[in-house]
Amino acid sequence: MNSVRIEDAVKRFGSTRALDGVSLEASEGITGLLGPNGAGKTTLLKVLATVMSLDSGSIEIFGRDPSRHRHRLDIRRRLGYMPQEPGFHRSFTAFEFIDYVAILKEMTDRKARHAEVDRVIALTGLEKVAHKKIKALSGGMRRRVALSQALLGDPRLLILDEPTAGLDPEQRLRFREVMSRLGEERSILLSTHQTEDVAALCPRVIVMNHGKMLFEGTPKDLREVARGSVWFSEARAPEARLSWRTGEGVHRNIGTAPPGANLVDPSVEDGYLLLLGDEAFIEAAWRRSRQCAGRPWFTGRYR
């Protein structure tokens, strides 16, 4: 049975259509939600996490309808949610905060609950800082606290909104390790705008923009979108929509390849960028500028 089924979901904020007819089904395994800022990922995940209702369309989670009180409680009992911007009780320690959420998740047996809190803390590698106040923790550590609480009670449905934002590479690897282990028996929906996460983790990828789903398939499928559209050249290719000089000194171009171009194997990111068009290019360029600040690498242009 599908854990999640959404049909023709619409959510408006004033004149903005944050969700504009989204339909999707998900069962066991990890589904990556990819899209630029404002694509509607958070809105979709909030709806799935039962903290937001739809304007129209239907939604079913574990065969239950979240608009009905009883059903909503059933869903929530089997749900782990990590909001994009989870707040923290700053004066609580990491342990206390997670423990507090555990109580809110109806874990009332103190001993068993503490054991469960210890388990998720170990899972996310927070042992060393578990008894530090949250206000003293780094951003990456706080993300892990947020993830830990989502994992409490081993929920069948995990909804993670940008779980890798702000993690350093080592933390990101660790996260992937945890996710791949968990993803086997439950449904995980995670949003990101990091294509590497999706490529590394998700058997299934959904690309969104402007509240619509643009793509649904495996990372391999997404990569294939760009096959024949990525090539190397000595100088910046005028045909390229996006072009940058790689560490090896050659230019990597994405766009409509000229005949005889030195085509290379595309990456998931290439497929994603092609799919989204200009806006994604702007975003990608901006992101790269942050990753390699101060180096004259960016030669992209917009069409």
Binding site: K46, A49, T50, V51, L73, R76, R77, L79, Y81, P83, E85, P86, G87, F88, H89, R90, V101, I103, L104, K105, E106, Q149
Partner: peptide, 17 residues
């Protein structure tokens, strides 16, 4: 008012309590 002060209302809303 802690959930409001520290903006945990969204997370709290997703919980069964």
């Amino acid at each position: 008012i802690r959930p409001r002060r520290y903006k945990t209302t969204e997370l709290w809303d997703s919980l069964v309590t």
